[in-house]
């Protein structure tokens, strides 16, 4: 599996569960997958929806060796199930552990665990699609998703797999998650909460092969670099443009920025030759925001654009950039 020469990685196809379009519960109402629904959290459904779309575009004949690298968010289980458990655990003086052990657990559907566990946001996709290769499931609130892409690139470049799905699914509108974020951050007026998923189908390409035709759309984009800086303490200050891997003539797409981070980015991007800086108006879908932006930026990039840096900033103050280059291997 190991190769002597690190291989380039190309974007073959995209799949999205877009937060700006209705994402109904009918996403998987047909086909054999409907039986899996009762085991799946909302994010798991979204992840599968996006992966299925990406795989349809990629049309890979065999997924046995394909990798799957996803970022996931907080546990997003069905709250009705939890409500039933808590109700059954109420004694005369309210909730007691004794009642929980005696009664609460009895009303708990054992399959609830598969909604509760964060990793099942990805695992259901593996089960339903049959990807059996290298994998990673990483926690993210935004910039952390770039770590999932970084892991996927490492596997593809090293030759651990020739094909891989990478992306994220998450929901910032799950009541517990929304409440948690309010506690940590207060209200964020510039980033309304949303939910969604996006998945890229990536393939390693032989560096000795010829360059593809330019301007052929997303399938001709290659991933040149992934760089990020974590938020929270200790944050070493604004990352420089060089630290983010942004070249002088890249078109730059920003999304998910907070006012303070935007100011830092403006400084970081100052003095570039290329003026093109676009701002995507995406809801904050936490882990899923970054791949939604990648998908959006790649889909909308004009044929004349040959290098594109998509910059992510998250609620924790993390900042990162993925640099896509068209046709360069």
């Amino acid at each position: 599996m190991s190769t002597a020469t690190p291989r380039a990685v190309e974007v073959v196809a995209l799949g999205c569960a877009d937060p700006r379009a209705p994402i109904g519960d009918d996403v998987m109402r047909s086909g054999p997958e409907r039986m899996a629904l009762r085991l799946m959290s909302r994010s798991a459904v979204l992840a599968y929806h996006a992966a299925r779309e990406a795989l349809a575009g990629a049309a890979w004949p065999d997924l046995t060796e394909a990798g799957l690298f996803m970022a996931v968010g907080a546990s997003g289980s069905d709250l009705e199930q939890l409500r039933r458990i808590l109700l059954a655990s109420q004694g005369e003086r309210g909730f007691t552990l004794a009642r929980f052990g005696e009664q609460g657990l009895r009303v708990c559907n054992p399959l609830f665990a598969f909604q509760l566990m964060n990793n099942f946001t990805m695992a259901h996709t593996a089960i339903l699609t049959g990807t059996r290769g290298p994998n990673a499931v990483l926690f993210s609130r935004g910039v952390g998703t770039l770590a999932a892409l970084d892991e996927a690139l490492a596997a593809l470049r090293h030759g651990d797999c020739a094909r891989a799905l990478v992306g994220a699914a998450d929901s910032a509108v799950h009541p517990v998650t929304a409440l948690e974020h309010t506690r940590w951050h207060g209200e964020l007026a510039d980033a309304p909460a949303g939910e969604g998923a996006a998945v890229l189908a990536l393939a390693a390409v032989d560096p000795r092969a010829g360059a593809p035709e330019p301007g052929a759309g997303p399938s001709r984009w290659h991933i040149a670099s992934v760089e990020w800086s974590e938020g929270g303490a200790p944050r070493p200050g604004a990352p420089s443009r060089a630290a983010l891997g942004i070249a002088d003539d890249d078109a730059v797409v920003l999304h998910g920025w907070r006012a303070d981070v935007a100011a830092e980015l403006a400084t970081a991007l100052a003095g570039r030759a290329a003026p093109a800086v676009s701002v995507l108006s995406l809801p904050d879908c936490l882990a899923a925001t970054a791949p939604l932006a990648w998908a959006e930026a790649l889909s909308r990039a004009p044929a004349t654009c040959h290098a594109l840096a998509v910059v992510t900033a998250d609620r924790d103050g993390g900042v990162g950039a993925v640099r896509f280059v068209r046709g360069a291997r």
Binding site: A74, M117, R141, A147, V176, E180, E230, G232, A233
Partner: peptide
Amino acid sequence: RLRTPADLAARALRAHFGLGGPQYLHMSA
């Protein structure tokens, strides 16, 4: 709180020991 943040231990490690590099938080059970 209703639950602790999934990455609370990572936050604590980064803050306590001054880790400034990238982080990879594995959730594969």
